[in-house]
Design a protein around this nucleic acid. Sequence first.
DNA 1: TTGCAAAGATAGAGCGCTCTACTTTAGGGT
DNA 2: ACCCTAAAGTAGAGCGCTCTATCTTTGCAA
Lengths: 326, 326
Amino acid sequence: MDDVAAKAGVSRALVSLVMRDSPRVSASSREKVLAAAAELGYRPNLWARNLASGQTHTVGVMLNDLHNPYFTEMAEGVAEVANKAGLQVLLNTGWQRDGGEVTAIEALLSLRTDGLVLAAPRLPAEILDGYASQAPVVSVSNYDRLDSFDTVCNDEAHGANLIVDHLLELGHQRIAHIDAGSAAGGPERRSAFIDAMTRYGLAPIVVEGDFKEDAGYQAAEQLMSLREPPTAIFAGNDLSAIGALTYLQTAGLRVPEDVSVIGYDDTVLAGIGTVSLTTVHQPRPQFGRQAMELLLERMKGRTEARHEQIEPWLVVRSSTGPLQPT
Amino acid sequence: MDDVAAKAGVSRALVSLVMRDSPRVSASSREKVLAAAAELGYRPNLWARNLASGQTHTVGVMLNDLHNPYFTEMAEGVAEVANKAGLQVLLNTGWQRDGGEVTAIEALLSLRTDGLVLAAPRLPAEILDGYASQAPVVSVSNYDRLDSFDTVCNDEAHGANLIVDHLLELGHQRIAHIDAGSAAGGPERRSAFIDAMTRYGLAPIVVEGDFKEDAGYQAAEQLMSLREPPTAIFAGNDLSAIGALTYLQTAGLRVPEDVSVIGYDDTVLAGIGTVSLTTVHQPRPQFGRQAMELLLERMKGRTEARHEQIEPWLVVRSSTGPLQPT
DNA sequence: TTGCAAAGATAGAGCGCTCTACTTTAGGGT
DNA sequence: ACCCTAAAGTAGAGCGCTCTATCTTTGCAA
């Protein structure tokens, strides 16, 4: 920076002002400085800048799993809003290792980011509480609604209702749910399903599963061997639904003529041609945008916690159809 | 830091040593310092540390598309090697915006990262050349092999040969290739296919396509309406292969009895039950690991460029089968 | 007891920038 | 010509740490 100042024949402070687009410099000296900087290949050192200014203009995003498109799409939403607000986004992940999340969060905290967005952290609320005292924190997950940090989550009950309503409209009555065990959103979806079915006076059929394809396959096998097999299956997520589809195909059953199948999430898998799965869409970028907006408010001083719930919607593809007369 | 030093009754320099696990401090003072730090909730400020030490222990990874699992899996490989070497990984992406890549790279450069891994940058080689003069750079892509930076790429020709050999072994002779246009790896795959077929004295059938599902669908439609339709189709990538599968299914053709289909990449899509696509596997984490290793060598002073090519392999699933007697 | 090396601890400069407070210059109004 | 104000530019302290050089303590052989 001194070199640039010397070359342009001005003071170091002026160079600093030019680099930050201050309106307080004349056009002529701005030009001189920029020319000198270009010639010397000068680029401000962000570490020094942030140290001196005491603010980092940076928010950290901790993704617990980089593989999962769910999180990366969410991160995109965060970045969109952050960039608009003039903030840099720093991504970090625990690489699914033991303690990786903690390491990742602490690294971001050591960088003194202005705020933290945590994507579905697998940490007890008390620990997040501790982090929240060091920087504003927004968690995208179904967390206990503490006062120290904000949350954004999906309205699971609404999603489950959409599914039941859709199937009912198509005339189905024997509807089964392959649940997703204790995985994120699983218990909420199951109980919303049971509630909805009961409300309509129908028997809720539930088999245990998880978020994997295999579980969907086995659950479908189980269901179809019942004395009165269901005419429609609501799987806990897309992957599980695809497992069910695979079983049905193997068993020579047609979808949707013999059985309707419905998933949850609307991942890229649901949309591909040979699958074409009806599913509930979760607007992942929207989660990120919402989270970042809450963070901005916190950074501007809001102190009471806010907890946002985002409405999913139904995407009807060709894995569901009207109940066939028997 | 001063507070910690005061509380522990030692000098600031000693606190610094403790924080960096220096062996030069006695067990007793280490304990005192750690206790004081814990009590005050002290956490070293990385910005200040990096500024003072002049080294960042950080490498930047620029992913041009965070959505694409290809890149995130690669990043995982980078992180694995980097962490083992005691380096932090900072992720950045251009969010697929115009000029986003440049912004992302420059941001990393402003952070004075010790090195840069670029995942399939869409920038002219001269620009990378310029960056390479500011920090060690490794590009994961089929780039011109310049002297200023290292590259890691896939051996496309080998992959195409694996495919042709596999189909030949199954007895196929009329083999078609749906190409991937000018997309990354596309031209290499096409010409390797043509070479291999010609070498075996077979006519290479090629139709134009791209990396999308739609293109695969249309290309398959075209191919199957030929007077002598192919008995096997090698699609430029998995998505295109899935498009082809979808068409074949619609047209009532069985896979692999009537037509064998083979993809390229081995994305998660290929493995799902209803698809079960034979494809060429690209070891994406391996790309990342290799890239990071090259970067480490550069950081240790190697100056001549190295260009690594990684061998893909074939994953046989159920979309390919022996040629049926007619 | 003395001397000396190694281990342990410290003072203070400096990393590259920003920020506050200040000085200089230019442009009106009377 | 004078004063006053606003704009443009600058000096120098300081952000939180590390690093070099230096000092102090300890242990042990002579």
